[in-house]
């Protein structure tokens, strides 16, 4: 009696872990071809992006970022600062690692946009879809990444593919949420005006709701990029090369100093991506007041 009050009764405990394990194992056996095809596609796309980044000479990339920084912020100093930061990355000997990291981040951001944007629109337009998808999003956002890292390896082997999947699962959420939030909160009168002038639902969506929601959607994109960046080290755990792996190598050797460099480089890349996209958001907002 006393035991029952103090401890959760043992008879009430159950274990679904094994069933799920078995399910994942069987699933990966039975869907080999599809999974392999996905894997090959992902690998090819990431390689493509990496190739693109790599054929741009380092100095040109720096110049492009400098110009973007200057144009978007409207201050020359900012451009110069970004340039200096990137030169720092190069002089740490981490340029190639940065490109590797970037190609995974960019690929997962693209995937997040391709999947997340239409899903966000769907949620905004359809109550039923919303009631199904929203809890899944909550789940994706709160589930510790580590939990799906291993299944991702079981399904997609190691390296770029599961890294991309895990990053996308984590980073896609703000894209979906902000898209739907933006669309739902477009000024009601404006939407009504569109309707009153005889727009079809599609016209209303494309000509009014989406453009009006653009600043919010861009904010979502910004958050998605930031979240993808924050997955860099986690992805190294499943074998993704890049800055994250450098950090792991160093921390596992208790070489704090050496871990600091790639750490700072991640911060640099994140800051630059954040400021550039946020600059875009601000511009959009200013346009629409």
């Amino acid at each position: 009696m006393k035991d029952y009050l103090l401890h959760f009764p043992k008879e009430w405990q159950f274990d679904v872990g094994d069933t799920i394990d078995l399910w994942i194992k069987t699933f990966s056996r039975e869907n080999r071809e599809i999974l392999t095809a996905i894997r090959n596609f992902v690998i090819a796309s990431i390689k493509g992006i990496n190739w693109l980044l790599a054929i741009i000479p380092w100095w040109l990339l720096i110049i492009i970022v400098m110009i973007l920084g200057w144009r978007i912020s409207g201050r020359k100093r900012v451009g110069l600062l970004y340039g200096a930061m990137l030169i720092f990355v190069g002089s740490c000997g981490l340029w190639v690692h940065m490109l590797e990291t970037l190609s995974i981040v960019i690929a997962s951001v693209i995937l997040s946009v391709i999947l997340g944007f239409p899903l966000g629109v769907l949620i905004a337009m359809n109550k039923r879809a919303e009631s199904i998808i929203r809890p899944i999003l909550d789940l994706m956002q709160t589930m510790p990444t580590f939990v799906y890292l291993v299944p991702a390896v079981m399904l997609f082997s190691t390296g770029k593919t599961p890294a991309l999947m895990a990053t996308t699962i984590y980073a896609i959420v703000p894209m979906i949420r902000m898209t739907s939030h933006g669309i739902i909160h477009v000024n009601g009168e404006v939407v009504e005006a569109a309707k009153a002038f005889g727009s079809t639902n599609l016209q209303t969506l494309v000509k009014v709701q989406i453009p009006q929601a653009m600043p919010t959607i861009m904010t979502g994109l910004n958050q998605t990029i930031m979240m993808a960046m924050s997955m860099v080290v986690t992805c190294a755990l499943i074998g993704a090369q890049g800055l994250g792996m450098e950090i792991l190598l160093a921390t596992n050797r208790t070489e704090m100093g050496k871990a600091l460099m790639p750490g700072i480089c991640i911060v640099i890349v994140a800051i630059i991506l954040d400021r550039l996209t946020q600059g875009l958001v601000k511009r959009k907002e200013a346009e629409q007041q």
Binding site: A196, G198, T200
Partner: peptide, 22 residues
């Protein structure tokens, strides 16, 4: 109905209902 709204009846709104991106 679309025809009615496109050709016969137009509306002007209290807070203008203008599209700020245009």
């Amino acid at each position: 109905l679309l025809d009615l709204r496109r050709n016969k009846i137009s509306m002007v709104f209290q807070n203008f209902g203008l599209m700020s991106h245009r």
